[in-house]
Design a protein around this nucleic acid. Sequence first.
DNA 1: ATCTGTGGCCACCAGC
DNA 2: GCTGGTGGCCAC
Length: 846
Amino acid sequence: MSEQIENENMVLLSASYDGIEKKACLKFYDEKTNTIKLWYDSSEHKPYCLVKKDTDEKLLETFKNEDKIIIEETKKIDLLNDKEENMLKIIADNPLIIGGMPGRSIRDRVVAWEADIKYYETYMYDKSLIPGIYYKIKDNQIIPSKFTTPKETNDMLQKGIENADDDIKEKINEWAELLSQPLPSIKRVALDIEVQSDKMDRFPDAGEARYQIISVGFAASDNLKQVIILRRNGIELGTNELEKDIDVIFVDDEKTLLENVFKIIRNYPCIITYNGDDFDLKYIYNRAIKAGIKKEDIPIQLGRIEANLKHGIHLDLYRTFLNRSIQIYAFGNKYSEHSLNAVSKAILNKSKIEFTGEIGQQTYYHLARYNFNDAEITLELTSFDGDLLMKLLLVISRITKMPINDLSRIGVSNWIRSMVYFEHRKINALIPRKDELAIDDDELKEMSSEAVIEGKQYQGGMVLEPKIGVYFGVSALDFASLYPSIIKVNNLSYETVRCKHKEHRENLIKGSKHWICDKRRGIISLLVGSLRDIRVNYYKPLPKMEGLSSDEKNLYSVVSQALKVILNASYGVLGAPIFPLFFLPVADSTAAIGRNIITETVEAARNNNIEVLYGDTDSLFIKSIDQNEIDNLISWSQKNQGVDLELEAKYRYAVFSERKKNYIVVKNDGQVIIKGLTGKKSHIPLFVREAFYEAIERLGEAETEKDFEKVKTEIRNIARESNKLLKEDKVPIEKLAFRMMLSKSTKMYKTTIPQHVRAARLLEEHNREKGDIEVMKPGDIISFVKTIGGVKPLELAKIREIDKKKYEEIMKSTFDQLLGPLGYSFDDILGVTRLEDLFWSSKTEN
DNA sequence: ATCTGTGGCCACCAGC
DNA sequence: GCTGGTGGCCAC
């Protein structure tokens, strides 16, 4: 049922294989009509393999030695229709199979075909389709839409990359064309359901779907705000505290409720949920089947890992926010727990609505308010900051060649895999299998650097010994995208590091046993290098350019963020055994060159009489704010190392202790930046953290060295005040709670039982006695307090059980990290306080 | 089924 | 009481 669509600009969202139609099904988003256009491609596309007469060994040899492997078409195997024995015969006659899913051997291809899941990869490659960009369909042909970049920005790009190598330059221009396309705003609806479960079963199984759905909330980008409520016996209406524009619809039976839900879903090309894969959509589907609704009338399609829409796409934000790259690089590690409440609190500063008792016993209006609120914050997670998340996904989709519904559910190693494989196919290069890149364990150990931390695979970044003290007039310098720069400049890639050419074995990397090919550009080096250059020289400075519209600025900063995510991951995956192109020598070489670069730069600084105070991996702190000295160092580095050293900031003063990764810097405007100190860590009690931050603020007030006396007095007052509150039991117990994440379920801790696990077990036991069998899961956060003789979960502890001495110790160690480098100690400061305290408490006792 | 890396500090556990 | 090892959080 191929639909004729003409002359429209549509964004390609996803591609899948329709097993019934035996056709490719493409989903395009049409911005004009706000709908998904389904496109069944009736042109022939069969999964096939090209066969080339050769042997594996011979080809591998060639692969390492030649500039490029060109695949020649000699014979096709039709994987879908050929009989297996026939295929095997062809394979026997032609031992090497390349192509079909180009680059992969027939074994991989057959496996991929059977799994059905990689279909879009081969289809999209064959048709030269890239998800996330605009197309027209005309005369049954899919034609990419053309967008031209504004002249000013293009000029800036060309100027920024004029010194790049030709191959990199070409690639950068290709990226620029792809990434400067406008970003569509996708019409979407967020959905959340509530289920009539009882207390004993707080997380009902969606496969079983035992309880009826009592409420479904909707919040959409076109301002639809609706809750559908199931009428039940004995439930009161309650008071209507909902905003006026929220529709509450009552229905009498679940089937009608579900039909209403489906009617709404069908109006939207994109549906957003929080944990919809595992719960909401699965639950709805199974209840619909139970209610006797026919499969073909349900717009939901359940996959193995993903619940999808027949007419559109579904994004499960739970899976997206679980992604570590998204968490750290896109959202700056703002959230640490992955519940809807925790994420929305951290990002939107909005919470779920609280209620007591069971959800099934709430009044209708309270249920509606609770349910709608969940749907609304779910939607808002995609719409805050000008649809940031949606746009980020679309840009990542363009870079990695993956549909957003896929990439939003999987980890970054798979993004990079998709991006790198696409590039292989594009140049008709063979994609090596894992076993072809594998190195024998003993051999690998022999050739790799020794890690500083036992149990790690190789040595990483270098951390300089800090020079203890307070320094006024300090500059922070760092290398822009150091590891990607190294990969670019040194031509690092799995096929160029330790290449097969005898003559290159002399090109040893200093401090390592690896050598680098200088005959051809490595594929990883080209990809990572071009992405690095376009970010540093174009997308990063672009938003500052004058005369840009806010849409343009927004696009550029989103692209910059997406590139940051990809670049940060691309080095890491090469050292990750799970990555299909894992090749440790590349990661090892990258880090080794990084250590060389920072060492040489420190040396160069010394030669120029610049004192280096501290440095970590790609950053240096120098005791100078002289622009000339800084510029000299920067140009030295550019000239001798080919990497971009940049001035990050000049600081009024900096404080270093003997501890690495622990320091304080103060900007000229008084803003204080703390790194690594215990006082800022998220697991310590709020009571300690608040006092710590108050003290930190005082540091911002110090303009010169002699101001520290005053600061000291003020910090003393803060410490004294806090201690007093603690002694008088005036600190609310919640503020005394440690909060720590469980990385395993409590039963899985075997070697030692840490305190937070003890607390978690106590809590589980307590709940079990109440009849609640729910246990704590990996990723859950346990709040506990230190009591005399041990720990207790926050919920079960009384204020009088608190071990005040322990908390005083924590205050001491936290404050000492701050005071030590300033030449004071907590005991000095509190020594004064203690006398007063004594005086004070004896007075009250009397 | 899913999973990017190493270096460093702190508090605590468990065994001696 | 000392000490090596574990687990969590952070810097890059």
